[in-house]
Design a protein around this nucleic acid. Structure first.
Lengths: 348, 348
DNA sequence: GTGAAAGCGCTAACAG
DNA sequence: CTGTTAGCGCTTTCAC
């Protein structure tokens, strides 16, 4: 088929057509497009003119086949409807898009089996790298020859060569929460955290205990609620259980903001004033922490920085560039709000 | 390189190797894998044994190149941190994964320019189809020869051939909200809706008006707040403005649940009891509507069904199968909660 | 600085 | 039923 006909038929142009149209070889067109040098400025201009005129876009499948890898990053995430994760994914996707990588997002719903399936799927797609958020990575990743980055949860029992870990300083987060509560006069601090495998929850609790020890406040084991969930309902029920057992406490540290929301809601429904009777601290600083009825004092994780750090390390790893450290721990900060300090601006 | 060596080097096997290993031709291997028939049961077993033994996975790039299309669907979404959208994306992704399609998710942040860029990107990737949620589709889609489905917002001014539209019955939703409020005795109904372009907000308001007209309740134009946002803050500020103008109202219809949350929060902060003084209805039924301090009466959109319908139509369209109707309007229902009917179960 | 040509792994004629 | 073969569009030697 002649070029004229192809144009009429609105078919996508290939490099061959561009080469004919611009009067240079197909190899040269490729060099210009990829900026791999060895062409004159004149040639470059000629080729680029044609490319722009016909709005040519290289065929990704062909490029991927030839280069034996896709400009695509797989992202595995437990639950995209959780704002902490969805905003994490959003940040990652923005950064990767800027670097011309597409992103394949996979939800595991916390199911290890599904996570395996997704991992296999991504590997079959020849993705260039994978980012696992809060995953339970199985040994499948041992077979993967590509860089893999973990956010928020440290994998264990698997080969960690060429593996990146980025996480918040969970211990410091728990410590800051404890400090806030103790400085505001709390003596009996309850806590509710996710204690699944090596999730971040228990590290956060460790930080809390550290603060209690340092500041001479007793630790009550029976005020620690261990759960395998991070949602509103678990927080609500946790408080109801505590109350049903007539436990006495004047503060509650929550492993996530969604837990805190449930906790505050349950306290409210039981006529317990927050923060007067019980002070509450959350973790993450998702938007609802700020906008809920009782704005929640929380430990902010710097999601933007987590995303940036992860993408930087992953891309460097993909490009086989030098990496100083494969394990980054990022700083956190306490955001004080009404759930510990009461009303401020509003007088009414 | 010999097969033995390749295996030792842990290199990914290709179809050629599988064909050698199983003693049949490469074409036959392809037939078995794709189930395109014309092979004996014996051959099938032989080939599958080898495939399983060596954990062979077909190379997607090669397949895509050969078939001139990727088994991938692009999803364009304005803001994945909004639970309505993220759960929509989640449902879509689950369904598509089952059908062996991967999903590329693109956030536009409501920016038309970015939406264009993403659209071009997806087209360059040779995706098989695109799903646009609440988008402002530009004329770029006119050039796309692939099926495109729209959820939640009707595009206009562009070529709608081969275009699918799936949406909730927004007018009915508004009507149900109005009926609820009026039946509970409300006489002065305020409303806050997104009136951007042809977004669903104004349709929802139309439904509300219809209920008011039918049931003989006056419509107050000055109680309609038109905004270009759907979040908590807009709802909060909307109420504050209304109060600053000393407007009188006994109900508020909100175009989204996040708006309703802001509205209720502002009313609460101003000492106005919900639902006693003002009754509030939201739209979407996101989880926070159920779990917030003041559970929100809302119009539930059937997200699962929207996703299922969209995927069905899109895949049918990709496979060039017959489609009865390209435009589906799905039913909605009112979920009564405390923001209109007060407490129920809890006596305290 | 440029071009010719080999092939990445797969599917789909086509021939038997 | 099965095998041979021709590319899909691109990158990358290898010549010149």
């Amino acid at each position: 088929m002649s070029i004229e006909r192809e144009l009429i038929m609105n078919k996508k142009l290939s490099m061959k057509e561009i080469s004919k149209l611009s009067g240079v070889s197909i190899a040269t067109v490729s060099r210009v497009i990829n900026g791999t040098g060895r062409f004159s400025l004149d040639t470059k201009r000629k080729v680029e003119a044609v490319i722009n005129e016909y709005n040519y876009v290289p065929n990704m499948a062909a490029r991927s086949l030839r280069k034996a890898s896709m400009p695509t990053i797989g992202v595995i995430v437990p639950d995209i409807t959780n704002e902490f994760f969805s905003s994490m994914v959003l940040e990652l996707q923005i950064l990767l898009f800027e670097l011309q990588y597409s992103t394949i997002i996979c939800n595991t719903n916390e199911l290890i089996e599904l996570e395996k399936e997704h991992l296999n799927f991504l590997l079959a797609q020849n993705v260039s790298g994978i980012i696992v958020i809060s995953g339970n990575p199985s040994n499948i990743i041992n077979d993967a020859n590509i860089p893999i980055a973990f956010i928020d949860r440290k994998p264990y029992g698997i080969n960690m060569e060429n593996r990146i870990i980025v996480e918040s300083d969970n211990i410091k987060g728990g410590y800051l929460a404890g400090k806030e509560l103790i400085e505001l006069g709390c003596k009996k601090i309850a806590a509710i955290v996710d204690n699944r495998s090596y999730a971040a929850g228990m590290e956060r609790y460790q930080g809390l205990m550290q603060a209690q020890i340092e500041m001479g406040i007793p630790i009550y084991d029976d005020l620690l609620i261990k759960i395998t969930d991070v949602g509103f309902k678990a927080g609500y029920e946790g408080v109801e259980n505590l109350l049903a057992q007539s436990k006495d406490f004047d503060a509650m540290f929550c492993g996530t903001d969604m837990l805190a929301l449930g906790v505050i809601s349950a306290l409210h429904d039981n006529g317990i004033n927050v923060p007067k009777k019980v002070k509450v601290v959350g973790f993450d600083d998702i938007s609802i922490a700020k906008y809920s009825f009782k704005p929640i004092t929380t430990i902010r994780q710097d999601r933007k920085k987590i995303a940036k750090t992860t993408v930087d390390l992953l891309i460097k790893s993909i490009k086989k560039e030098e990496i100083e450290s494969m394990h980054k721990i990022l700083d956190v900060e306490l955001i004080p709000r009404r759930s510990t300090r009461g009303k401020k601006d509003k007088s009414k």
